[in-house]
């Protein structure tokens, strides 16, 4: 048992490939306990894959994923299902169960994993919905909710079992500014009030920087850099500078790899 309890999640030498393509090559990431950690990177660099690796929905080809002194890739299927109770995940689409109403969606994890009496479940569900400001919507079905509200209901469901680790997959995508503001405040609030470890995967720079205590920037199958938002903003590393300041061309090229432009144009005549 490690005495070092400062980190909730530790990835050591994590390697993952999809076909011939290497998504992660010997990546080391340590997520501090009780803080909001942002994982950022350009689209398509495998951020969502990283979340699935942490949640052990995918098995890495090499390396270790340590969550609370357990190396997840070594657990059996049933141990994993048990382990996952410590996780809460907010999926990009919300992923509410479309055949259940808001109340039943939030109550679902409680019904599956606890033997609480019905009144207790009701109280917990209403408390969680109150926390996301949707207590009035208990009777609605998921398709009657707006995108932002869906995400908030999903958040209430994710915290129903009081998880130790809460993961957000692109929480800011496709949200209007008000919904975005609400979510940013909620993530911070839940983190501080419940003392959970939050992992926010996102490419929305401003929002992530405003709530994250610590940020990892990934890309090119490795960690490009990490530090507090303030540290990264003034980083001299060209790749991090490009990403943090949104410069179109740089180490991450504007052009998709192609043959020489001139020879391509001329070659077309043949």
């Amino acid at each position: 048992m490690s005495v070092d309890n400062a980190y909730a999640v530790e990835l050591k030498g994590l390697t993952f490939r999809r076909g011939a393509r290497t998504i992660f090559d010997k990546v080391d990431i340590r997520i501090p306990r009780g803080k909001v950690t942002g994982i950022m990177g350009p689209s398509g660099c495998g951020k969502t894959t990283l979340l699935r690796l942490i949640a052990a929905q995918l098995r890495p080809h090499a390396g270790e994923v340590w969550v609370n002194q357990c190396n997840l890739p070594q657990l059996s299927r049933s141990e994993l299902f048990h382990m996952r109770k410590q996780f809460g995940v907010l999926f990009q689409s919300g992923a509410l169960f479309t055949d259940l109403n808001v109340f039943e969606n939030v109550a679902f994890p409680l019904r599956v994993h606890t033997h609480l009496p019905e009144e207790m479940i009701r109280d917990i569900v209403l408390m969680k919905l109150q926390a996301v400001g949707l207590r009035g919507a208990v009777e609605l079905m998921p398709d009657e909710l707006s995108g932002g509200m869906k995400r908030r209901v999903a958040l209430a469901r994710a915290i129903a079992l009081d998880p130790q680790i809460l993961m957000y997959d692109e929480p800011f995508v496709g949200q209007d500014p008000i919904a975005m503001g609400v979510l940013v405040r909620l993530i911070r609030l839940l983190n501080d009030a419940l003392g959970i470890t939050s992992i926010v995967v996102s490419h929305d720079l401003a929002e992530t920087a405003s709530i994250a205590d610590y940020i990892y920037v990934v890309g090119d199958a490795r960690v490009l850099g990490h530090g507090t938002p303030a540290e990264l903003m003034v980083s001299e590393d060209p790749q991090i500078r490009q990403f943090m300041q949104g410069i179109p061309d740089g180490p991450v090229p504007f052009h998709f790899p192609a043959v020489d432009y001139r020879s391509d144009l001329l070659g077309g005549a043949q």
Partner: peptide, 9 residues
């Protein structure tokens, strides 16, 4: 929804 079920355990 299926991933989400897995994550709920």
């Amino acid at each position: 929804q299926i991933s989400s079920l897995e994550m709920i355990g």
